[in-house]
Each structure stands twice: as structure tokens, then as C-alpha cells.
């Protein structure tokens, strides 16, 4: 190595390992003894330093806004649920105490009602039946209102004239149309999202 100058790859090896001080002793010895190779290494080191100091170029100021306008921030359902629950929790300590006491009271009350219902099944069944009837009556009233709005009073009377089956078919058609419309909007939204991404 004494009379032979370093090869280009050996210079690179010295440059790359300079910081780690891991260069072979033979190369180091040659560099110590050879002014030409030292000069060559200095030139290469200067280039490496110049490259290390290259500055960043910056995009236009509104670059970030342009990117974010095309990014869809997706919030998983469990995070959305957790956030919703967190929003319900009051921020101040006294408010939290009040909310806690209220929640415990409600839970206790519901437990008592549940236990009572379990022990008095006949009464509970009666109450449940009344409740279900009222809910059904409310539901039917809503469907009638929707059908009346959509088709008019005369059409509703005609549908009711066909009996329970006719009313059920008409209601099913309305519900079906709503479902198809919702699915259609969702498919269109997904296609748009795919195109953008």
C-alpha cells in the first residue's frame, strides 16, 4: 500500500467510515504517509460536506392547505364513540360529582324496576303489552303520514281500501325506495372517494 495510491472505492470507504473511525489501519497508514492521497481525500471530503449542507427547498405557502383539501380524515367508529362519551363527561369536578350521583341513582332505579319486573312477570307483561301497542300505533301513524304526504289523501284511502295486505305492500315499496336511494348515494360517494384517492 505504501507505493500505491488509494483506489476511488477506498476513498469512499474512508469517507463513509470516517465518523465511525472504522477505517482499516492500512488505509490510514497510507493516508498519513501520502500527501497526494490526503489532498484527494480533502477534496472528496469538501464535496461531501457541501452535499451535507444543501438546503431544503420549500413548496408554495398554500401547499399544506391544498393537500389537506384532498385528504379524507377517517375516524374509526370506536374512537368516535369514545369521543362522544368523553364529550358527555362534565369538565368541572362538582359537575362530575352531580353527573355521577345522577347516573348511580338512575342505575339503581333501573335495577329496582328490572328486579320488580322479574318478580311480577304478569304485571310486567301487561305493561310491556301496552307499551308495544302504543309503539306500533305510533309507527303506523307515522307510516300513514308519510304515505299521505307522498301520495295524497285519496291515494291513502284507496290503499287502505285494499286491506292490510295492500297497505303492507305500499309501505314496503316506500321503504324499498328509501333504501335504494340511500344505497345509491353511498355507492356514488364511495366511487367519488376512490377516484380522488
Amino acid at each position: 500500500m505504501e507505493h500505491q495510491h488509494l483506489l476511488p472505492d477506498q476513498f469512499e470507504e474512508v469517507l463513509d467510515n470516517d465518523e465511525a473511525q472504522d477505517v482499516t489501519s492500512a488505509l490510514r497508514e497510507h493516508l498519513d504517509a501520502c500527501p497526494e492521497c490526503r489532498a484527494e481525500l480533502a477534496t472528496r471530503s469538501a464535496l461531501a460536506r457541501a452535499l451535507d449542507q444543501l438546503p431544503y427547498h420549500g413548496p408554495a405557502p398554500l401547499f399544506g392547505y391544498r393537500v389537506m383539501s384532498q385528504v379524507q380524515v377517517f375516524e374509526p367508529w370506536h374512537v368516535a364513540l369514545r369521543d362522544s362519551v368523553r364529550r358527555l363527561v362534565p369538565r368541572t369536578r362538582p359537575a362530575r360529582w352531580i353527573a355521577g350521583i345522577t347516573a348511580v341513582t338512575m342505575a339503581t332505579l333501573l335495577t329496582f324496576v328490572g328486579v320488580w319486573a322479574a318478580l311480577n312477570t304478569q304485571s310486567a307483561w301487561l305493561f310491556a303489552e301496552v307499551g308495544v301497542k302504543r309503539v306500533l300505533a305510533g309507527l303506523l301513524g307515522s307510516i300513514r303520514a308519510v304515505l299521505e304526504t307522498a301520495f295524497g289523501r285519496d291515494a291513502l284511502n284507496a290503499i287502505e281500501g285494499t286491506g292490510t295486505m295492500g297497505t303492507a305492500i305500499a309501505a314496503s315499496i316506500v321503504v324499498g325506495v328509501f333504501l335504494v336511494a340511500i344505497i345509491g348515494f353511498r355507492v356514488a360517494a364511495l366511487a367519488s372517494r376512490r377516484r380522488r384517492s
Binding site: G64, V67, M68, V73
Partner: peptide, 26 residues
Amino acid sequence: AQQGREAAYREILRRYERPVFSLIFR
């Protein structure tokens, strides 16, 4: 960001917009 925090998206963008732009620009 994976939890849907928009601020985290913006911070990733702020942190890397110059390095990424510089690489592509060059």
C-alpha cells in the same frame, strides 16, 4: 392520525413537506 385526528395529519405534513418537496424538486 390513525385515530382520525386531523391535527396529526397536519403535523405530519408540516414536518415533512420541505424534505419531500426538496427530494422531488431535485
